[in-house]
Simulated assay, not measured.
Amino acid sequence: MTRAQSILVAALGGVLAIFLVVPLVALVVTTTDLAAGLASPLVVPALRLSLLTTLASLGIVVVLGIPLAWSLRSARGPVARVVETIVQLPIVVPPAVAGVALLLAFGRRGLVGAWTGSPAFTTLAVVMAEVFVAAPFFVQAALGAFRRVDERLIVVARTFGASPLRVLLRISLPLAAPGLLAGAAMSWARALGEFGATLMFAGNLEGVTQTMPLAIYTAMESDLRAAQAMSIVLVAVAAALFVAMRALLRRAT
């Protein structure tokens, strides 16, 4: 590649980089009174609810996602491929579609909700929406982490009589821990930023289902300063998670 071609490639890449950076810079530099924005009555209930629901959804995702990823790590055949595809499908499904699907499944007249009672438009619905959209990120990362564990270690452990559960707890989990933590960080970040599925399935009820993204949406109609302040908080949290995730992934490799 000639020098001129290198400059052209760098310039094209720079255009995209600038486009991605400018809105984030504008979010910060145009802030007039961050403290006043954070003093909005929308902020504290939404922040509390976001922390509560995302931690609950993360716990569910980790507790159920580790066994699923462990089961799929060495599975072969069409059934395993179908299951893995279905598990990862919510990553590419639009959030609004996810919300409609949850409502049709667990709503008052839904496929399941009609028989079990509907959690729609409650705090539980927020957790369910977050689990639905965030779980694939953890499972995908956990799958990769478990598949990087040297299979020979597992074979040797089983040869010496270790049970599958003992192999998982004493060998696979410690070796896969950096990848699992990175997946948990990605999953939590996705849950924290969830908007569409939550709005469709849980609604936007202050103190009940109004998480930070929904509070930002509400504040945009009447208090731009509060919306901007909450946006900065979410960007700061996302940046911290990204830095931590990068560090964990470096350790994993």
Rank of each mutant, 00 (worst) to 15 (best):
V127H: 05
M1F: 06
T2V: 07
L205I: 15
A189E: 06
F195S: 10
V83R: 00
A120N: 08
S40G: 07
E151K: 04
I171G: 08
T30D: 11
G179V: 03
A247Y: 07
L52P: 09
L58H: 04
V112P: 11
E84P: 03
L38N: 07
V127Y: 08
T211H: 02
V233H: 04
L72I: 02
M128C: 09
A240E: 06
V155E: 15
F106E: 09
A125I: 02
E206I: 11
V28D: 08
R3Q: 12
G14D: 10
M1Y: 03
A56H: 02
V79M: 14
I154M: 12
L103W: 05
S222W: 10
L180P: 13
P178N: 08
V15T: 13
A240G: 13
L205E: 12
A191P: 10
L175C: 12
F195A: 09
P78R: 13
T31G: 09
I232C: 07
W115A: 14
I91V: 15
R148Q: 15
R81C: 05
A75S: 15
V29N: 03
A36V: 00
L234V: 09
G203D: 08
A244S: 13
T54L: 02
N204M: 11
I91Q: 13
S74D: 14
P95T: 08
A236C: 12
L104W: 12
L124P: 01
L143A: 11
I216M: 06
V233C: 07
L89F: 13
V139D: 10
I18D: 05
A17V: 15
A142V: 03
V149N: 12
E84A: 15
S71M: 14
M220S: 13
V82F: 15
S40Y: 01
L12I: 14
L205N: 09
L47P: 00
G59M: 04
F138Q: 05
L20R: 02
V82H: 07
M220C: 09
A69E: 04
L20G: 11
A26V: 07
A135T: 15
R166Y: 11
W188R: 01
G13P: 08
L248R: 03
A80R: 01
A145V: 07
G99F: 05
R73F: 09
R76Q: 14
A69L: 03
F19E: 12
Q228W: 01
V243P: 05
R158H: 11
F201D: 08
G37R: 00
G183S: 11
A26R: 14
L34Q: 02
Q140C: 06
L34M: 11
R152T: 15
V25F: 15
A101L: 15
F195I: 02
T2Q: 03
L180S: 10
T54M: 07
A227E: 03
E151R: 14
L234I: 11
G14R: 00
I7A: 13
P174R: 01
A114H: 10
T218D: 11
A182V: 06
V126Y: 10
A75M: 05
V167C: 12
E130C: 08
T123V: 09
